[in-house]
Amino acid sequence: MKPSAFEYFTPNTVEEAVGLLEKYEDEAKILAGGQSLVPIMNFRLGRPEVLIDINGIRDLDYIKEEGDDLLIGALTRQRDVELSPRVQEKCPILAEAVSFIGHVPIRNRGTIGGSLVHADPSSELTTVICCLDGEMKVVGPPGDRTLGPEEFFLTYLTTSLEPSEILVEVRIPTLPQNTGWSFVELSRRVSDFAIVGVATLLFMEDGGICKEARIALGGVAPTPIRAEEAEELLAGQKITDALIVKAGEEAAEIAEAEPDYHASAEYRKDMARVFVQRGLREALNKVRGGE
């Protein structure tokens, strides 16, 4: 299991990286954390001819606040996001979701941008970004553009990035007070790819009414998906367990689950129901302080 040969570049700026991408297009792969790419290369499933190592572009590594948003540089390590007091305070669901990715050594290397661009349908990060309505800022030869989750994630392992574009930043809204949240997942072993991952947000009003609910599911479709019918069911309601049960059932309806060795399509779909219910209960508990 040794990778095949490649040409190796270490740009120091985004512009240089984009220039290299323009030159080599789809012969080139960006090397960020490498925690998904290098195994693929070691198996020789992937044999990029050119590797553009962006780890030298240090100014893509940051977590900062702008208004009500967190801005996270694409090269920020997952472990830094997980441990960031700012993230834990302003957007705890993000820190929680990231903590499910692999193990510490994987998160030490793995980057936010790398994980999003890899667009694995089971990815915790893509699921939580979908739930949070995060925005991806990409830079290409003509300049930059910003994409929401639905524009960004196209299908299995595929984003709308052009061959010469690079993801540079993710913008994530912070959570207002009085928000219930949860990130729950089912996996064979702790840290394995999720069979189902569910991110939920409950924006509450005074009086215990749910103003808006968001439910994102990972692992049950080619991209992370939002359970819009279930969200609508909860919006404007006082959330009861009966409502949660119903929401789970609604959410499972939209799952286009595919079978693999670990989980049949039927199982996956039903687990979407179960974990949406569990996630909503946990989120509700949090906002009620009932933990």
Binding site: F43, R188, R189, V190, S191, D192, Y261, H262
Partner: peptide, 24 residues
């Protein structure tokens, strides 16, 4: 060691051949 009906081994990596970790 799982195989599909056509004889392909589906568990040729530690991602699918699941050795218990300390958490299990």
């Amino acid at each position: 060691f799982a195989y599909d009906e056509n004889g392909q081994c589906l568990t040729a990596s530690f991602q699918d051949y699941l050795v218990p970790t300390a958490m299990e």
